[in-house]
């Protein structure tokens, strides 16, 4: 049971959150990007055994989407989120 640092509410239990998956830098909705660029950005990678920038939604708290950097092997949450 992770303790997730919500920037607003402080450290809270994992069961108050809903997982949003790894952060992905998706192409902007500018009508230009094609399927190939999108598929590479959206489908591939982002499965490190180590620090991962990811999104959590504080569904039972402040209802904010927060970004966390967590080591996927030790579950240690890295403050400040440098990777």
């Amino acid at each position: 049971m992770l303790l997730i640092p919500c920037p607003h509410c402080g450290l809270r239990e994992e069961s108050e959150f809903t997982y949003g998956g790894p952060c992905r830098d998706l192409p902007a909705l500018d009508g230009q990007s094609d399927a190939g660029t999108w598929s590479q950005a959206f489908h591939m990678g982002k499965n490190p055994r180590g620090p991962l920038r990811e999104l959590w939604y504080h569904s039972s708290g402040c209802e904010a989407w927060i970004e966390v950097t967590r080591d996927t092997a030790s579950h240690e949450i890295i403050p400040g989120g440098q990777t």
Partner: peptide, 10 residues
């Protein structure tokens, strides 16, 4: 995402 081979008891 996890490689910890450990999860939440919930």
């Amino acid at each position: 995402s996890s490689f910890a081979r450990r999860g939440s008891f919930e």
